[in-house]
Structure formats: C-alpha cells, structure tokens
C-alpha cells in the first residue's frame, strides 16, 4: 500500500462512536479505536494507551499484534509509526504470544520498530530472545556504522546490548565486549553497563563512574540511571557529587540502596554500613 500523506493531517478531535463524551477512554474504546483504519492518529494513541494502562486482555493483545503488522500508517521516512507504538505497548503486557511476535520484528525494515522490539524484549525478560538479539551483533563494531542520511547506526545497538545485559546473557559477553570501544558514547556506555551486569567486574562499573564526569549533561544523566539500574555500590560517593539534578541522584542512589538491602541477610536486625552510608548521602540531597 502507498503511504498516505494526508493521514497525519487528520488530528481530528472528534472521537467518534467509540469514545465516551467525557474524554475518558474505556478498554473497549481503545480496542475499537485500534481496530478501525480510517484515522491513523486514533490508532496510534490507542496503542500507547493499552500499554500505559497495562491492558493484557486477549482482545487487546490480538489488536496490538495486528497493529504490529500494520502496512497503512507510514511516516515520511518510510517507517511504520503504528508498529513502533504497538511494539512498545506489548513490552509492558503479559501474554505468551508477545515474545515470538517481537522477535520476528527484530528484523523489521524500520530501525525504530527494531529498537522498540529490543527494548520490549528486555522488559519481557525471556531468555528465548537472547539468540535473535545476539544475531543482530554479528559483524561486530565494524558493521556498527552510521546509516548515510539517517541519525542512527545500522542497528539499535544501545537497546540490543542493554537487553542482553538485563537478560543475563552470559553467552553474549564476547560479542558485547568490543563495543566498549565504539565511537558513539551511548553505545559505549550501554556496553559498560551490560558488561558489569554480566561479569560484576569493577572495571566496567568504573567506566560508568567515568561517564558521570562527561561534559555532556545528557550522558551524565544516563550514567546516573545506568548505575542505579545495576546497583554498583562503589559509585555511591561519585553519584552524590555528580553535576546533575538532586532528583536524579536520589533515584540513582535508591537503586544502589535496594541492591545493598537485597544483599543483606533478611534476618539481620541492623542495617549494613553500606546501606547506612547510602541513606546519609540521600539525606544530604533532599
């Protein structure tokens, strides 16, 4: 089917017979909006809505799986916006059909659908996604080049590597390691994060600490989130002293604190020194 250049222009506020007048959408409204094909912006919103409100009914899943195969909603760059949103929504939901469908779209022609599929497979947490994710790293750093005329690399490496780390893909270590030297900082730090998750080796945690001193604020923020996600306890003081918002530093330290508390003996009456130190740092950032 040809792209419809007018489809994005219909930002109609009319919600049709499928929505109630008070602007509150029901699950049935959302599914009906996703199934109709006249208004692509309604479909796009409905896909997001079902994920946001975690609607895992069989009807919602079926409608999202259909949207994941959509051919009608096309972006000016040739991409598939509805597929992207359907892939993101499915990551948050629970149904045995989801993981195989997302795996199939790791080979989608649209880069952003592949990226959403990788991120959603990370959230689904199923090890069956590991071999197909690993396959996307074939060709190594040499193949991970910018696509001419596009603002991205050949594959969504950051999402793929982070997913492999979260899925505890020990078999991916040798494939991920070379990406520590990638020229794109976000890819490099994704590799450091995954390598730390997979090996628990200090050197990788230290690379994330180094990212806290990057001149780019966005990278410092993303290092705060990475350190919180992996719970690297030795980063505590560096996090507290980083040049970034206190709110983000508190979230990051909370990640470390949860890691420290989980490592403690559940029968212990007193808190560990690590936990107490983390809370002292957090108190100072309030």
């Amino acid at each position: 089917m040809l792209p419809n250049p007018d489809s994005k222009a219909t930002t109609s506020s009319s919600v049709g017979e499928n929505s109630s007048d008070d602007g509150v959408m029901s699950v049935a409204d959302a599914i009906a909006n996703l199934q109709q094909t006249a208004d692509t912006s309604l479909r796009y919103y409905a896909a997001w809505w079902l994920g946001k409100f975690r609607v895992s009914t069989p009807e919602a899943i079926a409608a999202l799986l259909t949207a994941l195969e959509d051919e009608s909603d096309r972006a000016p760059d040739g991409g598939y916006p509805l597929r992207r949103n359907a892939a993101r929504a499915l990551g948050k939901l629970d149904d045995p059909r989801i993981v195989p469908a997302l795996i199939a779209h790791l080979e989608d022609p649209d880069f952003y659908v592949r990226e959403a599929a990788a991120q959603s497979l990370e959230m689904q947490g199923r090890s069956q996604a590991i071999p197909p994710l690993l396959k996307l790293l074939e060709g190594g750093v040499e193949a991970a080049q910018p696509v001419p005329g596009k603002p991205h690399l050949t594959e969504p490496y950051e999402a793929i590597i982070e997913a492999l780390g979260t899925l505890n893909a020990i078999e991916a270590i040798t494939a991920i390691e070379p990406f520590l030297g990638h020229s794109v900082a976000k890819v490099k730090y994704a590799a450091a994060r995954a390598m730390y998750q997979l090996t628990q080796k200090d050197e990788y945690g230290q690379q994330l600490i180094a990212a806290l001193r990057d001149p780019n604020l966005q990278l410092r923020r993303s290092a705060l989130m990475d350190l919180g996600a992996v719970g690297y306890l030795k980063a505590a003081d560096a996090i507290a002293g980083a040049f970034a918002e206190n709110s983000l530093k508190l979230i990051s330290l909370k990640g470390l604190l949860e890691q420290a508390l989980n490592a403690e003996n559940p029968d212990a009456v007193t808190l560990s020194e690590d936990s107490i130190h983390l809370m002292q740092l957090m108190d100072g950032l309030l």
Partner: peptide
C-alpha cells in the same frame, strides 16, 4: 518502597 522502609528502620535504631 524498600528505601522508605529502610529509612524508617534507620530512624528507629
């Protein structure tokens, strides 16, 4: 939240 439970525990110690 685990962090809130832990901070309460610290305040009680």
């Amino acid at each position: 939240e685990m962090a809130v439970r832990a901070r309460s525990q610290l305040a009680l110690s």
